Simulated scan of single mutants.
Amino acid sequence: MTFPVRVGVQLQPQHAPDYGLIRDAVRRAEDAGVDIVFNWDHFFPLYGEPDGAHFECWTMLGAWAEQTSNVEIGALVTCNAYRNPELLADMARTVDHISGGRLILGLGSGWFQRDFDEYGYDFGTKGSRLDNLGESLPRIANRLSQLNPQPLREIPLLIGGSGERKTLRHIATHGNIWHAFVGVDSYRHKSAVLAQHCADVGRDPAEIERSAEIRFDGDVAAMLKFADDITAEGVTLLTVATGGPDYDLTAVEALIKWRDARAG
Rank of each mutant, 00 (worst) to 15 (best):
E233F: 02
N148I: 01
A141Q: 08
T173S: 13
R27T: 14
L88W: 06
G161D: 05
N132Y: 06
A221C: 05
A232V: 01
P151G: 10
A172P: 10
N176W: 12
A53K: 10
S186H: 12
H174S: 10
G124H: 12
R23G: 11
S136Q: 04
L88Q: 12
F181P: 00
E209K: 07
C198Y: 06
D204I: 02
G124T: 02
V5L: 15
N84C: 04
R262H: 10
G202S: 13
A241Q: 14
L107Q: 05
I171S: 11
G183T: 15
A89R: 04
F226Q: 11
V77K: 01
L21Q: 15
F181W: 15
L157I: 04
R262Y: 09
A251G: 13
H179S: 01
E209G: 04
L76N: 08
K190V: 00
E154A: 13
T239Q: 15
H197Q: 13
G110I: 01
P205W: 10
T239P: 03
S128V: 00
T125P: 12
P156T: 01
R169W: 05
I22L: 15
V201H: 10
D117N: 07
P245E: 03
A92K: 05
L144T: 05
E49R: 08
F181M: 13
R188H: 12
W178S: 00
H174Y: 15
F55T: 02
G234A: 10
D131L: 14
M223F: 14
V5S: 11
F116M: 09
R129Y: 03
Q146T: 14
G183N: 15
D228M: 04
A89D: 03
I104N: 09
T125A: 14
D35W: 12
R114P: 04
E30T: 08
